[in-house]
Amino acid sequence: MLRRVAPSLRRAILTSSAHGRAGAQLTEPGLSPRHALLPQWRLCSSAASTNSPPPPPPPPSSPPQGTPRPAGGSTVSSLNPAEVAKFAAIAETWWDSEGPFKPLHLMNPTRLSFIRSTLCRHFRRDPNSSKPLEGLKVIDVGCGGGILSEPLARMGATVTGIDAVDKNIKIARVHAASDPSTASIEYFCTTAEDLVKENKQFDAVISLEVIEHVANPSGFCESLSALTVPNGATVISTINRSMRAYATAIVAAEYILNWLPKGTHQWSKLVTPEELVLILERASISVQEMAGFVYNPLRGEWSLSDDLTVNYIAYGMKKVETPSESN
């Protein structure tokens, strides 16, 4: 099963399984996905508005333990003026490059260049084309305000964006409509799991900075896999569960720089690259390439590197065989 994975990684996987960590994550049956994910959506959707108390950051040395977050019903009513005004306020922050989603905006060109290069190779597209993804059906799972969906549409893809939070979808729709090159994006408020039930499939399934917000990463990856056509591509990015990730992504970004709303990330939810490869492998996706993102504070820019210790991105291919055959 691990035949495509490099020896060094295999070692890493074995070590982490030995500590019982990866195994625990992988076999965790989880709650029903929909239920399990709700608290996390709240985290992201509440980015701008809510004032939930910050969870005490877990001591980095302790083994990751889930800190249960208070769940709350996040039902969105049909439009009323007060709600609309709130959307406007949130839209401002989703698309405010200096707002709470600043890190995503800063990272966007870098992660898109990874996606461009891997998808061009995967689908044998001309990398010099201005619309290399033309004709490809791509889904952005957990699209938020559409920060990633819009560039994908400009690169020619036929984009579907889904998010579990209705407000995000509304904001994404309005924003995309203001540019003809993104107006064709279809946004829906739904979850990956529900789309699977509808038997929807896409050439490429992309879900960036979402998996750390779901309660059951392996279930989530299985849904992503089910949404991917055989031989299609899957791209996932997230934050590593490392000391450095704790220091930079959580403490610095949430508590010192105030880039992210406090409580955005929970230590225990973070997935290491080794775990991700394993989880994906189980879900019939063989990881082909990974890259890390490093931030250069002087230039204020991110670049790709082979350092996966903080933020990283993985691209894999959906295998033709079913999971049961490959095991």
């Binding site: 495509r4 994975v5 260049s113 290069s117 390439e289 990974m290 590197s305």
Partner: peptide, 10 residues
């Protein structure tokens, strides 16, 4: 990008 990327396959 290629050379910077850690390829996770043989």
């Amino acid at each position: 990008i290629r050379p910077l990327v850690r390829a996770f396959c043989d």
